[in-house]
Design a protein around this nucleic acid. Sequence first.
DNA 1: CTTGACCCTGTAGTTGCTACAGGGTGCATA
DNA 2: TATGCACCCTGTAGCAACTACAGGGTCAAG
Lengths: 137, 137
Amino acid sequence: MKIGELSRATGTNIETIRYYERIGLLPEPARTAGNYRSYGEAHRTRLAFVRHSRELGFTIEEVRSLLDLADHPERECSEADRIATRHLTQVEEKIGQLVTLRDELSRIIGRCRGGLAADCRVIEALGDHTMCNGDHE
Amino acid sequence: MKIGELSRATGTNIETIRYYERIGLLPEPARTAGNYRSYGEAHRTRLAFVRHSRELGFTIEEVRSLLDLADHPERECSEADRIATRHLTQVEEKIGQLVTLRDELSRIIGRCRGGLAADCRVIEALGDHTMCNGDHE
DNA sequence: CTTGACCCTGTAGTTGCTACAGGGTGCATA
DNA sequence: TATGCACCCTGTAGCAACTACAGGGTCAAG
């Protein structure tokens, strides 16, 4: 498989594949006589693992740890569980923050009744930080 | 006010203040004899506006537009409303994505009953993209 | 007169890619 | 044989929004 085919097979940008190789997430593949990268099924599987992990929001370093574990099936999986659980916590925190944000934005926008910027509630709200009750960290 | 005081007054990193000045979000302040930046109340207000906007997740370019509007109170505020509404939509989309993410993560983690990586559901789930119903873009 | 806190400029690093520039390869077609 | 085109290669620079130095200057206190 050439890089373009792997790209299409996994929905990954070609530059991204080369980037993953550069940072050591994907092993260097064999080369053809013309110096083209030549991938096998194992590469496709590994790249799919990386992409799925990234879609779930794991950082590159987390993906590296997860891959490392996948490469060593004789180890305990508590590390994987720990990484995933911590990530879940972070996602939940982020959701909470965004919900707070959404509420504040809705409130600000709801008060805008058009007209001149001089009287705009959006602009006013942004300038005046005390408008929110002050306890959002 | 020297930069350190402005930093404390607004909870903004000193480097960030200089960065904002460099990219033109904050005007260049007067300088003391010793070439120190010297800020006034207007700078503090403007920086607070920027920080609050950034906390709400507006991009630098959006903040630039909002500031521009705040600087011209004779204009209509429909632009501010448009920017804020678009941003609200984006925040809502992001919340939706994260909720989907959280659910998938919970499902994956919930199935992990410890043991060896060889049998780990987390690792397995990451490798096998078809485990999710397949319709998340 | 030296110590320490503060300030200055300029540049490089962060994350996770993405986008070139400037070339080489490989195959079909004229 | 030439040539066009799609594809591939390396290496470097760019994005957002900061953050972190290095290597120096300023200023007040002791």
